[in-house]
C-alpha cells in the first residue's frame, strides 16, 4: 500500500495537459478598477504575473507571485473574494510546483529551442491534484445540497435560483413558462446526481490506471467512457448555468481545469485525428 502510494505520486508524463491549464487560468483575472493605492499596486502586479504565467515566462515564479498578490487582494477586501478566487489560488499553487512551463511556453522555447519543449516527462502528481480538486469541488457541493428544493419531489432549486434577481440573468416571461419549470426540475435532478457522482472520476482514473488487469467491472467502466461522459455533462452544466445565471467567472474558471482530466497522450491522438480529418498524413 505504501509502495503504491509513493509510486502514484512519483509518476511522470508529458507536460501538455498542465500547460493548457497554465495558459487558461490567468486570463480569468478580470480587469476591475481598484480604488485604493495598495489594491492598485497588487492589481497591476497580478496583471503582469498573469500574463507571465499564461505565456510561460518564469512560470513558477509568476505563479507564486500571482498567488501572493491575489491573496493580498483578498485580504484587502475579503467580502469581494469569491469561492472561485480561492479555487484559482489553489490551482496556481499546484502549477507553481509543477512542470507546466516545460511545454508550450517561452521558458520551453528558451531552454530547448522549441515551443513544445524537449518532451521530457514531468511529474504527474500536480495533474492528479487538480483532478482531486475538481472531485472535491463537485462532490462536497453535492453533499451539502440537502435543502428540500434539491430533493424529490420538489426539485425546484434551479427554478428558484433562476428567479432570484441577484443571480438570474433574465427577468423575462419565458422563464415563467410551465415548460421551463419542468426543464429546470430535470436539470436540478441531473445536477444533484452529477455532483454526487464526482467520485466516479477517481474510479475512472483507477480503471484506466489498471487497464492491463482483468475484470468485468473494470472493462465495463472503460467501455462506458465514464470520464468523458462526466466531463461532457460538466461542460453542459457550466455553459448552461452561465447562460441562465450571473455567476461571474465561475463557469469558465472551473472549465479551465478540465484539461487536467485528459492524459497528455490523448492530446497527441487528438492532433492526429484532426490532421486525418483534414486529409493530411496521419
Amino acid at each position: 500500500m505504501i509502495r503504491w502510494w509513493v509510486g502514484l505520486w512519483d509518476r511522470r508524463e508529458a507536460a501538455d495537459s498542465l500547460a493548457m491549464v497554465r495558459a487558461l487560468v490567468p486570463w480569468l483575472f478580470t480587469l476591475a478598477p481598484p480604488t485604493a493605492d495598495t489594491a492598485s499596486v497588487a492589481f497591476w502586479g497580478a496583471v503582469v504575473a498573469s500574463a507571465g504565467l499564461a505565456a510561460g515566462i518564469a512560470t513558477r515564479l509568476s505563479a507564486v507571485v500571482l498567488v501572493l498578490l491575489l491573496a493580498q487582494l483578498a485580504l484587502i477586501l475579503p467580502a469581494a473574494d469569491r469561492g472561485i478566487d480561492m479555487l484559482i489560488r489553489n490551482t496556481l499553487l499546484v502549477l507553481a510546483c509543477s512542470g507546466a512551463g516545460r511545454a508550450w511556453s517561452v521558458d520551453a522555447r528558451l531552454r530547448t529551442g522549441r515551443w513544445a519543449g524537449d518532451r521530457r516527462p514531468i511529474p504527474s502528481w500536480p495533474r492528479y491534484l487538480l483532478v482531486v480538486q475538481l472531485v472535491l469541488l463537485y462532490g462536497t457541493a453535492g453533499m451539502q445540497k440537502v435543502a428540500s428544493s434539491w430533493l424529490p419531489p420538489d426539485w425546484s432549486a434551479l427554478w428558484i435560483a433562476l428567479h432570484d434577481p441577484h443571480f438570474g440573468r433574465f427577468d423575462a416571461d419565458w422563464t415563467w413558462s410551465p415548460g421551463m419549470y419542468q426543464a429546470s426540475r430535470l436539470a436540478t435532478a441531473v445536477t444533484w446526481v452529477w455532483e454526487w457522482a464526482a467520485p466516479l472520476v477517481l474510479v475512472a482514473f483507477w480503471a484506466r490506471d489498471t487497464e492491463g488487469r482483468p475484470g468485468r467491472r473494470r472493462a465495463a467502466l472503460r467501455r462506458g467512457h465514464i470520464l468523458a461522459l462526466y466531463a461532457a455533462l460538466g461542460v453542459v452544466f457550466h455553459l448552461g448555468t452561465h447562460l441562465l445565471l450571473r455567476l461571474g467567472i465561475f463557469p469558465f474558471a472551473v472549465l479551465s481545469l478540465y484539461p487536467a482530466l485528459v492524459h497528455p497522450d490523448a492530446w497527441a491522438g487528438l492532433v492526429t485525428g484532426i490532421r486525418h480529418l483534414r486529409g493530411g498524413p496521419p
Binding site: 491573496a71 451539502q144 428544493s149 434539491w150 425546484s156 432549486a157 428558484i160 441577484h166
Partner: peptide
C-alpha cells in the same frame, strides 16, 4: 492558508432562497 488565500468551501447554491432581495 491565510498567506496563500487557499482553502476549500463549496456549496454552489446549497440552499436556494425563495425569499431573495432585488437590489
Amino acid at each position: 492558508l491565510r498567506l496563500t488565500g487557499t482553502g476549500q468551501a463549496w456549496g454552489l447554491f446549497a440552499f436556494p432562497d425563495p425569499h431573495p432581495g432585488r437590489l
